[in-house]
Nucleic acid binder design. Structure first.
Lengths: 208, 208
DNA sequence: CACTGTGAAGTACTTCACAGCT
DNA sequence: AGCTGTGAAGTACTTCACAGTG
C-alpha cells in the first residue's frame, strides 16, 4: 500500500478530482469502472487505473471499483480522515476573502486563527475568528495546533513572514503571494497564483 | 515572432513569473541574464532561455536580456498591454471574497460586474460593483464588454451557469467550482481548485 | 569571453494494448 | 465477458552541452 515508486504530483491532483466525483455520483453503494470515472472527469481511463494502482489494488477485474471503498481509500491517502487547522496570515483583501470562504472548511480544513501586523486589525474578530498579532505567531500556532499557514501578505513582507512561519514550526504553507519563497526542505510549500491564472487566459485570448 | 511550434502550457505560466521578477528587481534599465532570472525564480537557466526563445530572439549574446524590452515583450505576449473586463458570477462567500480582492486589478484585470440569482443580493452593491440578475447575463456582458467570467456558484448550478456564459458569448472562464465543466472548444476554460491545493499539502504531510 | 539559442539527451508523464483475474 | 493492472510505446517537457555571436 505504501510504495517505493515515485508518485507523480499530477496523480495527487487527480485523486482530489476522483474524490469529488463521488459527491456528485452521490451513491455510496455500488461500483464504478475506470471508464466511468473517465467519463465524469475527462481523464483517460488508463490514467485513472494507473493513478489508483499506485496506492494498491483497489479494483476488481470484471467489476470495477467499489465506490465506498475507493472513497475511503482516497480520503485516507489525501489525509482527509482527520481535520487540519489552518491560519490565515495577512488579513488584507485576499486574506479576508479567504477567511470568508467556507469552501476550505467544507472538506476537512478549519481556519482557526488569523494574524496580521496592523494594530487596527489586531484583536478584532472576523467571521468569528480573532485576529492575532503576527508577533505572537509561534504561541498561537502551538496553542491552536496550526499545521497549515495560508499566506496572503504584501509581496515585500512575504519572505520575512515565511521565515516566521518556519520558526513557528508550522509544517506547510499555501502561498497566495506572487513571490518565490525560500524555505527549508522539510517545510511543504505550494503556490497559488491567481493573477497568473488570469494571465494564462488572456495569453490564449490574445493569440486569436 | 509568432510561431508554428507548440508552446508548452507551463512556459506560459513561467512568463508570469518572469514578469513578476521585474517588479521586484525594480530596475527598468539594464539587463538580466538567464542565469540571473534563474536565481530569482528557481527555474533552470536553460529553461528560461528556451521559454523566451519560443517568442523570438530577445537576448544579446554575451550580454543578456534588456529588462525594459523583455518586460514589454512578456507584457504584450500575455495580453497585459490592455485592460480586460471580468465578471464575478456567484456572489457567495468565495465570490464576495474574489470581488474584494484587488490583486486581480493590480495587473490589468478589472472586475466590472457581479451576477447572482438570489433576489436578496440582486441590485445591491459590493465594493462599488452592482450585483445584477444572472438572467440578464447576456445584456450585462455585452454592455460591459465582459471577456472573462469568474465562476463561483454552487457545484449543482455550475454547468448550467457555464452554458449561460457560453450563450452570452463570453470567451473565457476562470472556474473556481470543483466540477468538470463541459464547454465548446472555442471557449477558454481554466480551473482553480483551492481545496485541491490544500489536499496536495495534507497528502504530503500524511506521508511523513 | 560571457551569454544566448538550440539540437540532442534525459526525464517525467500519458496512452496503448493486452495478459490475467473474477 | 468485462474490467483491472501494468509493461511497452508514445508524447511532452526539462536539462545538458556547446556552437555561434555580439
Amino acid at each position: 500500500m505504501t510504495r517505493k515508486v515515485k508518485i507523480p504530483v499530477s496523480t495527487v491532483g487527480r485523486l482530489s478530482i476522483y474524490l469529488r466525483v463521488f459527491s456528485q455520483v452521490a451513491k455510496t453503494q455500488g461500483t464504478i469502472s475506470s471508464k466511468g470515472l473517465a467519463e465524469w472527469t475527462g481523464i483517460n481511463s488508463a490514467q485513472v487505473r494507473k493513478d489508483l494502482a499506485y496506492f494498491g489494488q483497489f479494483g476488481r477485474r470484471g467489476v470495477g471499483y467499489s465506490i465506498q471503498d475507493l472513497k475511503a481509500q482516497i480520503t485516507s491517502i489525501l489525509g482527509l480522515d482527520r481535520e487540519w487547522n489552518a491560519a490565515i496570515i495577512g488579513v488584507g483583501h485576499l486574506g479576508t476573502a479567504l477567511l470568508m470562504y467556507r469552501g476550505f472548511g467544507s472538506r476537512r480544513f478549519k481556519v482557526t486563527a488569523a494574524l496580521d501586523t496592523d494594530p487596527d486589525k489586531i484583536s478584532w474578530e472576523l467571521e468569528g475568528i480573532r485576529i492575532h498579532d503576527l508577533a505572537d505567531l509561534a504561541a498561537v500556532a502551538r496553542e491552536k495546533r496550526i499545521e497549515i499557514a495560508i499566506l496572503s501578505v504584501p509581496a515585500e513582507a512575504a519572505q520575512e513572514v515565511a521565515n516566521q512561519v518556519v520558526a513557528a514550526q508550522i509544517p506547510a504553507i499555501l502561498n497566495f503571494v506572487p513571490v518565490r519563497l525560500v524555505v527549508p526542505k522539510h517545510v511543504l510549500l505550494r503556490d497559488v497564483d491567481l493573477a497568473g491564472e488570469l494571465e494564462a487566459l488572456t495569453y490564449a485570448m490574445r493569440k486569436r
